[in-house]
Design a protein around this nucleic acid. Sequence first.
DNA 1: GGAACAGATGAGTATATGTTCATATGATAT
DNA 2: ATATCATATGAACATATACTCATCTGTTCC
Lengths: 121, 121
Amino acid sequence: MQQPIAEDCEVTCGGSEADLVRIKAEMIAEPLIQDIAEWFKVLSDPTRVKIISALMRRELCVHDLSELLEMGQSAVSHQLRYLRNMRMVKRRKVGKTVYYALDDSHIEEIIQVTLEHLKHK
Amino acid sequence: MQQPIAEDCEVTCGGSEADLVRIKAEMIAEPLIQDIAEWFKVLSDPTRVKIISALMRRELCVHDLSELLEMGQSAVSHQLRYLRNMRMVKRRKVGKTVYYALDDSHIEEIIQVTLEHLKHK
DNA sequence: GGAACAGATGAGTATATGTTCATATGATAT
DNA sequence: ATATCATATGAACATATACTCATCTGTTCC
């Protein structure tokens, strides 16, 4: 009767096969992993961080954001769409102009925590 | 004596030029923006989130990580180098095998905060 | 020494991402 | 209706990213 062949590095790597199975079960579930990565990707681009940094002060229209960031209107608009899809910002239309504001209570908190972290490094 | 010409959208966009200048001064400084984006980029990839998720349990060698993630050794190794450069993980060598462990006290906290956030959405 | 193994790394490649350009939409004013 | 302004959006393009493959380094065991 064949025993299941032991993995090559069962001993050398310190962890038994059973251990790995347990760890795998304890790891964050796949769909959640995807969500986390997607969420962090929002803040992984300087332009988006700048936009959020500006909106932390007050709501702003696309044109003003474009001036603050010294970037083309189109580029800003594309990123705003991205942020809107991610439910990070909401918009309010007044005549021709569109005002954007933060729509996620946790962003500021997480940015603040990260700032503290980066300072103490 | 010439007054500085007002910006096109001074009135329509609701913010005076002086306001924009003030906001610009209050925004997070450019180099810090870059650091924040770089830091978040670490967790913007599912593979890296998985690696960190696994290392939150205990230190692991490359081979075991490779098994846990069901990915090639090379791919895992590349990401580990990235994480090492970002000072997110440290390594400990024992004979042929190299053990990786978390080297950033704040990652777990931030992931935990993010998980809570994602659940309550 | 040489074989076997764990891991690291450079090159190549396919895909993702961010910006620009041109143009479209939608609103206001004349 | 037409012109103008604020914003949105699709296509194109250049760069960045993550993986694979082949190869290299460093260690142990014979």
